[in-house]
Amino acid sequence: MNSVAYFERLARYNRWANGHVYDACATLSQRDLDAPRTAFFPSITATLNHLLVADSIWMSRLLGAPISMPLDTVLFAKFDDLRAARMTQDQAIIDFTSTLTPDVIASDLTYQSVTAGAYTMPRDLVLGHMFNHQTHHRGQLSNMILEAGAKPLEIDLIYYGRDHL
């Protein structure tokens, strides 16, 4: 598989996994979503918002129109609004990956970090990080969702592959 197809697949997997996370969250009350939890961000809602913020920042950099905001910004306090924004962002990521070329993926990206200085990194590493970052926090969400009483999530990449190849 070439690098373009790989990142296109990760974008589709990302949407699929986020859909499962949000479906599980939809079974919980807003109170459960906002309840204090033990994770990097202090609630399910805060973690879902962080993922949306981080994706917005990375996509803005990749598209050449960088934005910056604190990584703990709560863009949407209400679940339905957050879910709609997540769906829009996931489609934007899919649309973006469909425009990639091997030359673009092989190039470097220079960006200003939210918390540190300027960096120049290989674009394939940045793309890989964007998807891996989602996976990292979905793991935390999986635990928080289970603690809140929802069913365990089966969102590993291999499960996606079994259903979508």
Rank of each mutant, 00 (worst) to 15 (best):
N2L: 06
S3F: 08
S3P: 09
E8W: 11
R9A: 14
R9F: 06
L10H: 11
A11E: 07
R12S: 15
R12N: 13
W16Y: 08
W16P: 04
G19P: 02
G19L: 13
V21Q: 01
V21T: 04
Y22Q: 05
D23T: 05
D23R: 13
A26L: 01
L28A: 09
S29D: 04
R31Q: 13
L33P: 03
D34E: 10
F41G: 01
S43K: 09
T45G: 13
T47M: 01
L48K: 01
L48H: 01
N49D: 00
N49V: 00
L51R: 08
L52N: 06
S60M: 14
S60Y: 15
R61V: 14
L62Q: 03
G64V: 12
G64E: 08
G64P: 09
A65H: 12
P66I: 14
P66F: 14
P66E: 09
P66D: 11
P70G: 15
P70A: 15
V74F: 06
L75T: 14
L75E: 15
F76M: 08
A77F: 02
F79E: 12
D80K: 03
L82E: 11
A85V: 04
T88E: 13
Q89I: 10
D90M: 10
Q91V: 08
A92I: 05
A92K: 14
I93V: 14
I93M: 08
T97A: 03
S98T: 13
S98P: 06
L100A: 04
V104H: 15
I105A: 03
A106K: 12
S107M: 13
D108N: 15
L109W: 15
Y111H: 00
Q112F: 05
S113V: 00
V114A: 12
A116M: 08
G117A: 03
M121P: 00
D124G: 00
D124V: 10
L125H: 13
V126T: 01
L127C: 02
G128Y: 03
F131L: 06
N132I: 14
Q134E: 10
H136F: 09
R138F: 10
G139M: 01
N143A: 15
N143G: 13
M144N: 02
I145V: 12
I145K: 07
E147K: 09
A148P: 00
G149Y: 02
K151P: 04
K151W: 02
D156H: 04
L157R: 05
L157K: 02
L157H: 09
G161E: 15
R162C: 02
R162I: 09
R162T: 10
D163Q: 15
D163E: 15
H164N: 15
L165D: 15
